[in-house]
């Protein structure tokens, strides 16, 4: 069974792609940090990241997916370079693996991420999809 409190704690960050920004040096992070990895400041604020970016590199998970992801096989996971320069790891959806390319423009979408059986909670979060043309 998935942990409800563990999921709940991350909801705002995962639903809305919120990272953090150092109030001292301005560095932006995802996932959020409590201490700045550049200047060491402990004063950081929530920062809403850009919802558009480009695929920097990607893979297609075909074998031995984690429990709760097996129904989605094959699925694409990519490092997305957002417009504000931050890199995030995300599934890429609404695209067949053969169509994915490095440099492909993508945008945020809201999806089911994990579901473990029919009893537990459904975990939602951000994923990316090719930009609507």
């Amino acid at each position: 069974m998935l942990s409800a409190p563990r999921y709940w704690r991350e909801i705002r960050y995962r639903y809305r792609l919120i990272g953090s920004r150092c109030l001292k040096c301005g560095k932006i992070y995802f996932p959020r940090r409590l201490v700045c990895a550049v200047c060491g400041s402990r004063k950081l604020e929530d920062y809403k990241l850009s919802e558009k970016g480009k695929i920097k590199t990607f893979t297609v998970i075909r074998r031995s997916p984690p429990l709760g992801y097996e129904k989605n096989v094959p699925y694409v996971v990519a490092v997305v370079e957002l417009e504000d320069g931050v890199n995030v790891l995300s599934q890429i959806v609404d695209v067949s693996p053969e169509e994915v390319k490095i440099g492909m423009p993508v945008e945020l979408t809201f999806r089911k991420v994990r579901e473990n059986g029919k009893e537990g909670i459904i975990e939602y979060g951000f994923k990316f999809r090719p930009i609507f043309e």
Binding site: R14, K56, T57, F58, T59, I61, R63, S64, P65, P66, Y69, N72, Y75, V77, A78, V79, L89, S90, Q91, I102, V113, R114, E123, G125
Partner: peptide, 18 residues
């Protein structure tokens, strides 16, 4: 990272492709 559904070989694959 694990939450995205990526596997350990998947992470290596991201590096390999890049």
């Amino acid at each position: 990272v694990a939450f995205t559904g990526v596997t350990q070989p998947g992470l290596h694959a991201l590096v390999l492709r890049l």
